[in-house]
Design a protein around this nucleic acid. Structure first.
Lengths: 291, 291
DNA sequence: TGTCCATTATAGCAGATTCGTATAGTCGTC
DNA sequence: GACGACTATACGAATCTGCTATAATGGACA
């Protein structure tokens, strides 16, 4: 059973005569004739009665038409889907990300990305960076974003490093300074991430190196929480300048010495080829993370 | 997009290598290779990554596979349905019939006909013979059975004539006779069809011709009702010997003089070709009506 | 009845497609 | 470095497709 036969059959059923069906399909009448003859021969069905040089569809033809039309639609649908995939209108994007980025930056980028991609399906899973790393190794995701250091490095990894900045209310006395050091923060109420976080470790080292007293008044799990505490006047804190930017509006940001490094990475599954969709989104994400 | 391309694609997705897919499809490996290359070229999708002489399906291939498989199934289904139609396993049979035949005989024949035809859809509509005639002219039915005379004759019509027989309880005194005439029934309680029915007209003539008194004690719409009244001892009656046979078990049947003719006809739509299914069923019905 | 018109069917041919064989290229493994 | 497993390309034969030309059929109408 060939597709062209079904197309000819459908056109003939819809338009009554071979001559007209041929016009519609842009082919000759004898072409239709042989196609229909072939279809009748191969199916063993008498689809049309030849009455007075005209065709009359048999009841069998009407029964078969339902299935033929369905089959043609399915094929045409496959063809359309192929075009949608090619043009990036259809696809899915499963992303695993650590909390700070999945709260604001990622949704913002994704909704921007989804414009003009009506059939795009997006899945975002938020886990801590260690879990994100495990999820990537199970190949369940097209893409992942995690903080470094990872327990062990993955092959496909694109790293972004940031010098963290000190955030404090505009009204804070230290906001007058162009740059802030541990000395400036000696005994100043400080909001930080939990003890396990690399940022915490680096801060602890920095304060002890400078011989300043690090007065931690709050430990949070997410940057966003820390930022909110600072905004409420609970103390000052330190964040990366890109991923956390959406949370620091209305706060003063000052460079911090010594350099406190925040590193995040875009991870790709190792054994799986990335989809074009994923590659396209990575471009957008990369641009955002470089900014 | 050609079917063979989709078949090759499916086999390749299912079996991993072109070599194996070729075996499964009974073709050569280069054949698969060119088919896939053609499909990739025509869809504009990169469906497989060539890594070290091996193929690795891309995420796009996985997306497309869903639709490709669906399309192939639809086509294969159409092919299967064609075979079912050809073999008579699939089809429908819409029959309009007058009450007496649609109550017993028709269902009995249809259930016999439906054996070995799993996908057969049957529709029976019961109307009086005049309405049946109208329904046939609207071409909504594959077949109809009505009593004669019709108000006007249809072109495709096969007539069956019966000499009606007298029915009476076995215990009835007249059951001893081999044959019954209006004289025998002079004043005998009689159950008959309604006044409008051809049978009624013929009986009235017969009794008046013989100068016998026709003692009608009940008029019914259906033969089945009349038969039941006779079985209950309400009187004697007259029915055709074939269509009404299912209702007359337990009753004595005797030939009646003069001949009271019951005529019924199998009607086919005029402008519509009959389905093979309908033709097959007519054969069965004809055999039953001739018996 | 004969002519015209609209339709379908068949024949023959050119081009496209399909699919085989032969062969080369690639990569991992031992 | 040879082998094995795999894919890609070249080329030719068979098949399929779809065209033009033409025949055949039957209805409409003068």
């Amino acid at each position: 059973m060939r597709l062209r036969q079904l197309e000819c059959f459908r056109a003939l059923m819809l338009h009554g005569t071979m001559t007209r069906a041929a016009e519609l399909l842009g082919m000759s009448q004898p072409g239709i004739s042989t196609m229909i003859a072939g279809l009748e021969h191969e199916t063993g069905l008498t689809l049309f009665l030849r009455r007075g040089g005209r065709l009359q569809p048999t009841p069998e033809a009407k029964l078969f038409y339902v299935e033929a039309a369905r089959a043609l639609e399915a094929v045409e649908n496959a063809s359309r889907v192929a075009a949608e995939i090619r043009s990036g209108r259809r696809g899915h994007l499963a992303i695993a990300a650590y909390p700070s980025i999945s709260i604001k930056l990622l949704p913002r980028l994704l909704s921007q990305f989804a414009k003009g991609r009506p059939e795009l399906q997006v899945k975002i899973i938020t886990r801590n960076s260690a879990t994100v790393r495990e999820l990537v190794s199970t190949q369940q995701f097209d893409l992942a974003v995690a903080e470094l250091p990872l327990d062990y490095p993955t092959s496909h990894m694109e790293v972004f490093s940031y010098d963290c900045m000190c955030m404090l209310p505009h009204a804070h006395p230290l906001a007058k300074l162009k740059q802030i050091t541990p000395d400036d923060l000696d005994g100043v109420p400080f909001v930080t991430l939990f003890r396990g976080d690399p940022i915490y470790q680096q801060l602890a080292s920095a304060f002890s190196e400078y011989g300043a007293r690090w007065n931690v008044v709050a430990e949070t799990e997410f940057f966003s929480t820390a930022c909110q505490l600072v905004a409420e006047g609970r103390g000052v804190g330190i964040v990366d300048p890109v991923v956390s930017k959406p949370f620091t509006e209305g706060l003063a940001m000052r460079p911090f010495k010594p350099s406190i490094q925040s590193q995040i990475a875009i991870l790709s599954p190792t054994h799986e080829a990335p989809s074009q969709m994923a590659l396209d989104f990575v471009k957008l994400l990369r641009r955002a993370l470089r900014a």
